[in-house]
Simulated scan of single mutants.
Amino acid sequence: MGWKTNYRSFYYENAPEPDDFVFKKEETALLVIDIQNTYLQPPEDPAEQKRWAPFLKRMNSTVIPNTAKLMTHFRDNGMDVLFARIACLKENGKDRSLSQKKPGWNYLLLPKDSEESQIVPELLPQEDEIVVCKTTDSALTGTNLRLILHNMNIKNVIVVGIFTDQCISSSVRSLADESFNVIVVEDCCAAGSDELHEKELEILNMIYCHVLSSKELTSFL
C-alpha cells in the first residue's frame, strides 16, 4: 500500500497507478495554509474541549512537527515556502467574505494584527517568505497568490495545513482549476475529525491532486 493506491474514491477505484513524480526544484513550492494561533487554543467549554481534543492532539503531535520538518527540507534544498492565513484588513471585519460573517462555527473575526490571526510560533515565516491574507476559504480566490505563483514560475504546489475539508479542499480545487500540479501531504493536514480528514482526501485524490505522506513526498524532492 502507498500513495499510488491509497485514498481511492469510487471514481478512481480501478484507475491505473500514476507514474512517479519528477519535480524541478525551481518550479516547486510549499504552501502552508491557516495553521494559526486561534485554532490551537482549547475551547473554554469542557464538553467542547473533549470534542476537539483529538484534533488538537493531531495538530501538536503530527501536523505541526511534520510541517516544520517539511519546511526545513524545502528551505535546505532552495525551494520556496509560502503561507496563507485568515486575516481581515478592517478591525470590524467588514472586508470579510460572507462565509466568515455568518453565525456559527465558521464565523471568524481575525484582524491582521491580532495575536489570534498569527501563524503558530513553530512555523513562522523566515526572511522574505511570502504570506498572503485571505477572508475566503480558497487561498487563491481572495488573494493575488495565483499571480505570485505564476510570476515565480511555480508549477507544482505542495499543500499542507487546515482544515482538510474546508480551506485545504477549496485551495486545492482552485489550484487545480488554474492548472497547477497539486500534492496534498496527508500527515501535514487535519480536519475537525479523522473521518472528515480521510473522506475529503479520498474526494480530492487523483482528480484535483495526489495525496502523499511527507516521507513519500521527500523521496521525490
Rank of each mutant, 00 (worst) to 15 (best):
M1Q: 12
M1F: 03
M1S: 12
G2S: 15
G2K: 13
T5P: 03
R8E: 05
F10I: 07
Y11V: 13
Y11F: 13
E13T: 11
N14S: 15
N14K: 15
A15Y: 15
E17A: 00
D20T: 05
V22G: 00
F23W: 01
F23V: 02
K24I: 02
K24F: 05
K25W: 00
E27S: 14
L30R: 10
I33F: 08
I33W: 09
D34C: 04
D34A: 03
T38S: 01
T38D: 11
Y39V: 05
L40P: 02
P42K: 03
E44G: 12
D45F: 14
D45G: 14
A47W: 07
A47N: 10
A47V: 15
Q49Y: 09
R51H: 14
W52Q: 08
A53F: 06
F55M: 06
F55Q: 01
L56T: 04
L56W: 05
L56E: 04
R58M: 09
R58P: 02
M59W: 00
S61Y: 00
T62D: 11
T62F: 01
T67N: 00
T67A: 06
A68G: 11
K69F: 05
L70S: 06
L70M: 11
T72Q: 07
F74L: 09
F74Y: 13
F74I: 13
R75L: 02
R75H: 06
D76E: 15
D76Y: 09
D76R: 15
N77G: 01
N77A: 13
M79A: 14
D80Y: 09
D80H: 11
D80V: 14
A84E: 13
R85Q: 06
R85A: 07
I86A: 09
A87P: 04
A87Q: 05
C88F: 04
C88M: 03
C88Y: 06
C88H: 08
K90T: 09
K90S: 05
E91H: 02
E91T: 01
N92V: 06
N92E: 08
G93S: 10
G93H: 06
D95V: 02
R96N: 11
Q100E: 06
Q100V: 03
K101L: 14
K102A: 10
K102W: 12
W105Y: 10
N106P: 07
N106A: 09
Y107F: 13
L108W: 03
D113Q: 10
E115C: 01
E115N: 03
E115G: 02
S117K: 04
I119T: 14
I119E: 14
V120M: 03
V120L: 04
P125D: 03
Q126F: 00
Q126D: 03
Q126C: 05
E127H: 05
E127P: 01
I130Q: 14
I130G: 12
I130T: 15
V132K: 11
V132C: 09
T135D: 00
T135L: 06
S138P: 12
L140Q: 08
L140A: 11
T141E: 13
L145D: 13
L145R: 08
L145Y: 09
